[in-house]
Design a protein around this nucleic acid. Sequence first.
DNA 1: TATGAATGAGATTTCATTCAT
DNA 2: CATGAATGAAATCTCATTCAT
Lengths: 201, 201, 201, 201
Amino acid sequence: MGIETDTKERLLACAKEEFLANGFQKASLRTICAKADVTTGAVYFLFHDKEGLFSALVEPAYRGLMAALAKHFAEDAEEDFTTYVHTPGDHDDFAEMLINALYADYDAVTLLLTCAAGSKYENIVDQIIALLEQNFGAMAVRYAASTGREVNPFMTHWLSHMSVMAYVHLITHERDREQALRDIKPVMEHIIVGWLQYAVR
Amino acid sequence: MGIETDTKERLLACAKEEFLANGFQKASLRTICAKADVTTGAVYFLFHDKEGLFSALVEPAYRGLMAALAKHFAEDAEEDFTTYVHTPGDHDDFAEMLINALYADYDAVTLLLTCAAGSKYENIVDQIIALLEQNFGAMAVRYAASTGREVNPFMTHWLSHMSVMAYVHLITHERDREQALRDIKPVMEHIIVGWLQYAVR
Amino acid sequence: MGIETDTKERLLACAKEEFLANGFQKASLRTICAKADVTTGAVYFLFHDKEGLFSALVEPAYRGLMAALAKHFAEDAEEDFTTYVHTPGDHDDFAEMLINALYADYDAVTLLLTCAAGSKYENIVDQIIALLEQNFGAMAVRYAASTGREVNPFMTHWLSHMSVMAYVHLITHERDREQALRDIKPVMEHIIVGWLQYAVR
Amino acid sequence: MGIETDTKERLLACAKEEFLANGFQKASLRTICAKADVTTGAVYFLFHDKEGLFSALVEPAYRGLMAALAKHFAEDAEEDFTTYVHTPGDHDDFAEMLINALYADYDAVTLLLTCAAGSKYENIVDQIIALLEQNFGAMAVRYAASTGREVNPFMTHWLSHMSVMAYVHLITHERDREQALRDIKPVMEHIIVGWLQYAVR
DNA sequence: TATGAATGAGATTTCATTCAT
DNA sequence: CATGAATGAAATCTCATTCAT
């Protein structure tokens, strides 16, 4: 650490600013480097390329988020739906876990979820939606089977989409973690009602 | 009709393809013109500039959509909420009106709602959300007042957002108008329940 | 005369405006034609090309000016310098003749003298300077011979230059013909003194 | 110095040639770069843009010239005109100072005074004329007052114009500094006579 | 560790001009 | 008499990337 660390961190700070302002694609490397008082070559030495610079900012958040989701779904898979009865607040722990994962590094998650177009992360929201659809969809199938009804695939997709967008919307509109936690609860409640009411028919 | 018309239509067809594939910003005029077997100068003669070319594809859809929304809200403003009781399907006409506006020119609406970044239409989704929030928000205030409760502003924004995204999602995922109409109904039902249940507290 | 004349005259009027504002080179044919509500093709039909359009505006003024100068110098050639004594005002007729030629069509002369860069008239000022230098130079030689002195070629060139620039300056700074006539007299007086005093040494 | 320096200097040399031949506006970056065997990008790295390239050629000359003028007028401001009597050669030092400033970098001054149209320097001649008019005009007012006469504003402007054009003409027509110095003296003499004789009436 | 120099491909846009009709 | 359509060449500039040092 020392002079070199400075360069790297200055570069990361300026890159964060620029990517947040303009998105990955439109952001200009020269602008970032000019702000950081560094030549563009430095980016290629330190981060290999533009995408590497972006990755350095978002990869940890990406892994953290994916790990949190994977862990959650691993636990959820064991749940027995034949006897499930929804009570308000029974998903608060899921919400809290996600809020924690999202707000652990607010800027990084914002970059990841809203500024990644043009980078290799550009499909991350869709990926997460697909992940939810897969897991919640499986639950819905079991739930439907247990109640003698059938799944509505469009609603399954839509509710997965909504679940993810709820958090994207939160990150975009509420900077405070505690307030975010309060805001998300009725949204989750609403979505769960949707699953019970409309995902099966 | 004839040779000249061909050029304009070939250009529009190739532009549509390119804009759908890459979005307004990333789309290349060169590529469009090469595909249409025309020089870039032709675009400037026929459409003034890149944005004019995009406009030629989406402006009618834009106007149609805005007009439909304006008309709807003008009618809605007269509704009396003190006595409102929701019954399933009582918003089907709103849904149908919107689906009609959206599916009247499927490609144009897709361009408008999902490929406009970088053009003057880039904020259209946010604009529509704001329009809904303004109108539904006012209704929520009246509804809240009539039931002695207060509005939850985050939910107001979120439900407006969701209402719009429901249609964006539909356009993105369901090409068939009739199926779209069937798909959207439970979604709207769910969102209305959200308004009644969670927008006030 | 009728519809067609209109087109031509509208075109000439708009061209004059545009050439005066931006000069021949920078002026844009499309802008001119757009203002005249005419297609660019019309220019090529009516005036052959951009330069033809400019010529239509300035050629008469060009001929008038050149003719006036030629006539003057033809008369001057016969003057006897061995006995010449300058008296104030003895060149007023020359000045008046030139002012008349210049202010006969103010706009056209302005175009010709200050907006012709890039056109075939772009050297007109230098040409006139050369013409003066040739004629006044010859006079200076005779005058020098009659007084036993020799010509200063730099001053000969410079005074020719100044003589021409006096009128260019006038056209650029004084719109009113009568005022121009009053303004130019001391200038001419001064320049003649220059010829007598400094063109020979 | 070495390979890298070459590029910059080659670029400057070719740019000078091209700007002298065609003027700033009409000069083509492509052509300059092609002659210098360099890509256009190099210009943007080394000089930021076309104007930066031009500036690199003329800015020092511009500063030198302006500084010389400013210095001269600062000194002149203290002169007492009530007792001024003109003697031949009493402005030789002013002429010499200007010639020195102009011929210090002949090409750069030529570019600045005759090829700057379209660049940020395009009004430099008019600026200098205005500067002279301001300073000489003030002197003329004082001189007129001391002799009970009044100023002729057209002549004030014209003589300022002539003073500047004398040097522009010199730069354009006489490459040799020493010869220029000899040439300018009678011109200055003549102009001073003009000030004394015609600027007041 | 990082710079400084430069590339090469590409972007959008503007221009005077042509020509069949 | 003039249009409408289109060309082709050129303009300035931006970009991510490379690489010797």
